[in-house]
Simulated scan of single mutants.
Amino acid sequence: MSDPRPVLVVTSLFDPTADVVISELHDRDVPVVRFDSGDFPASLSVEAEITEHGLRGRLHTPSRTADLAHVRAMYYRRPTGFAFPHLDEQDARFAITQARYGLGGALASLPGCLYVNHPHRIGDAEFKPAGLTAAADAGFLVPPTLITSSPDAARNFIRRYGSVIYKPLHNPVYRVGGVSSVVEVAEVSVNDIDDEVAGTAHLFQERVPKAADVRVTVIGGDVFCVRIDSDLLDWRTDYSRLTYTPVEAQPGILAALHHYMNRFRLVFGAFDFAVGEDGRWWFLECNPSGQWYWLETETGLPMCAALADLLERKT
């Protein structure tokens, strides 16, 4: 007899990666309830009751209803934020806070649910200083990194290490001419540093002379490693110039991956490494909500099946 408990997929309306996972789950007769938490309360409603027996209740979308006490797993991807444009600024701020701690709190407290990943764990893992510190503790090679708002500290760091890159600590979407854009990774020199650095926090990191990059996608107990060859500082700036090769993890990498995942209590992670000219892998970051499906289409690695196995709770 099939398991009637649904998988919740929490993401925005346009998410091709979620689409392929949902299709795979449908082919397995696994019930799915997809919604964007940002649609609350316009087309999404919830009633969650907490008793001595724990949390129970229902969540309603325009086409589905989920029993909150019997959710199999939640695939938490990239939902939009709460918005109340019909309210004035102060009332909207209040309503957004109540939605976040009300609906968000209920969704983060589902009994017996496997989270891929839990939204609170995603939030913890998205802090780059925490991720870099955890990576060093796990045994990864980590490039020397400075987080500062001091122009003098930035200049001294660049003088010490010579070849240094700047990275945003988090990448909110900018719109330039109506087109979504992001702040790119770039090499910086002492002459690039001025007093505007004092305006906020910045991340500077020694540049690793690299031969290639590796994206490692961890899905439950499965680990998929893909070497990415290009002549780019940041391969994400031009996918047309990339070539892909599945590879095996270097000795020690698997143990470090699991140490890192356990540190943040993640079951999914997209890790980026720079492959040094000597062949060693240098940790750059782990995205707990990173993209992965394009690598399956490029390499044939069974990543969608692995994620569906996890959500179905076969593994």
Rank of each mutant, 00 (worst) to 15 (best):
A106T: 05
L107A: 00
R78V: 01
H70S: 15
G131Y: 06
P168V: 05
R77S: 06
A95N: 08
F140A: 03
E187M: 00
L132H: 00
L141P: 08
I122H: 13
D192Q: 11
L68W: 10
G112D: 06
T148M: 09
G177Y: 07
G131E: 02
R175M: 00
G112C: 07
R160A: 14
H118T: 05
T80P: 05
Y76C: 05
G162M: 03
A135N: 01
P144V: 07
M74S: 10
H70V: 09
T97N: 15
G123K: 15
H118E: 03
L203A: 07
F82Q: 09
I158P: 01
G178A: 00
E196D: 14
L203S: 08
D195C: 05
I193A: 09
L132F: 03
F94V: 13
S150C: 08
A99F: 08
F82K: 02
A125E: 01
V116Q: 03
F82L: 06
P111N: 12
R93D: 02
I147G: 07
Y166I: 02
F82E: 09
Y101N: 12
I165R: 10
F127Q: 13
I96R: 14
T80G: 04
R78S: 09
T145H: 01
T97D: 15
P129F: 02
F140L: 02
S189G: 15
A201Q: 13
L87D: 11
S109C: 11
A106H: 06
D88E: 09
K167R: 14
I122Q: 13
I165L: 13
L68Y: 08
V185C: 11
L87Q: 06
Y115S: 05
Y166T: 10
T97L: 14
A198S: 15
R121T: 08
E89Y: 09
Q98N: 02
V176A: 14
L87W: 02
L103T: 04
D192E: 11
D91I: 10
A198Q: 11
M74H: 03
Y101D: 13
R159W: 08
L103V: 07
A154L: 06
D88M: 04
T148C: 07
E196P: 05
N171D: 14
G102Y: 06
H202T: 04
R155D: 05
E89M: 11
E89H: 12
D124H: 09
Y101Q: 15
V71C: 08
N156D: 15
R78T: 10
A136Q: 02
D152C: 04
L103S: 02
S109Q: 10
C113E: 02
D152A: 01
F140M: 00
A83M: 09
E126C: 12
V188M: 13
S181V: 06
R155N: 01
A138T: 01
S109E: 03
D137C: 03
I158V: 13
V173H: 06
I96F: 00
T97H: 15
G162P: 04
R121N: 11
E184W: 13
F127N: 12
Q90G: 09
G162Y: 05
A153P: 01
V182Q: 13
